[in-house]
Amino acid sequence: MMVLLDLALAAWLLALALHVVMERNERSAIIAFLALGLLLGLVWVRLAAPDVALTEIAIGGGGTGILLLRAEAALRGRGKHEEGATRGGKLAVAAGCAVISAGLGFAVLALASPAPTLAPAASDAIAATGLGNPVTAVLLAYRALDTLLEKVVVLLALVGIWSLAPDGIWGGAPEVAPAAVPGPLAWLARILPPFGVVIGVYMFWVGADAPGGTFQAGTVLAAMWLLVIMAGLLPPPDAASPALRLVLVGGPALFLAIAFLGFIVADGFLAYPEGFAKPLIVAIEAALTLSVAAALAMLVAGPARKAPAR
């Protein structure tokens, strides 16, 4: 029974991906891509990865989807084109890609069996962290350095996007709300955020022991914030505003501070003192969730459109 479901999912996934690539209308293709994100979420559930499923649906599908839709609306008809391939060229590329896929498929089939795994190591070590969700343990303990540097990557992407504003208005606010806010949107922006914030906080809170965590929670909070800004209920913040910058930097800064603390009270950089691992990790996650929420929302909002209020 499950095999049938898996096969159907796989076929649907590939058909939809092909549709995204082949569809002529740009907007239809992007909407199909959004659906692809949801489908991928289901696939991740079948791969026993609920944490990834949440992340994929929230960021991979939803976040990227809204980003692309906004871009399509802004670019409509004047998007940048490079010379496309000729028919023959396309066929050749398609053949090449098919060969790559086939080779890759072969490599996947040829992977070592029984599969090597760190699952035993990860579940043995988890006691030292006091966490219940092994994925969170990997992200915030075993491989915390990756997570720390990745936060810097997100921040840099934001710095890069902000730097695309013209000189005079750098540090100003992006433009997110439409000129006239439709009534239903304003209504939704009043109804939904209380729910959304509760859900976001819940996702962060259970993340230590159950599927969920900073990214997923941060995305939900970012979505709520964007919704409120889009409906014109709150103005978009100036990039230069100290409050925004503090929230953005707060998460990584606390992470770094605790990492350095490890030099003094534990085994070294990014080591947690025995018995205090869980509260420290939850504190880091709390700060990171806010930073991630602010960063993701600002990444979607784009560079400044009006000069900072000063």
Binding site: P182, G183, P184, L185, W187, L188, I191, L192, F195
Partner: peptide, 20 residues
Amino acid sequence: ICVWLLAQISAATASQLLAR
């Protein structure tokens, strides 16, 4: 039940926006 409620709210808003 929350899932159902939230889906109701967002579906209603989306339909409204599209219809407008």
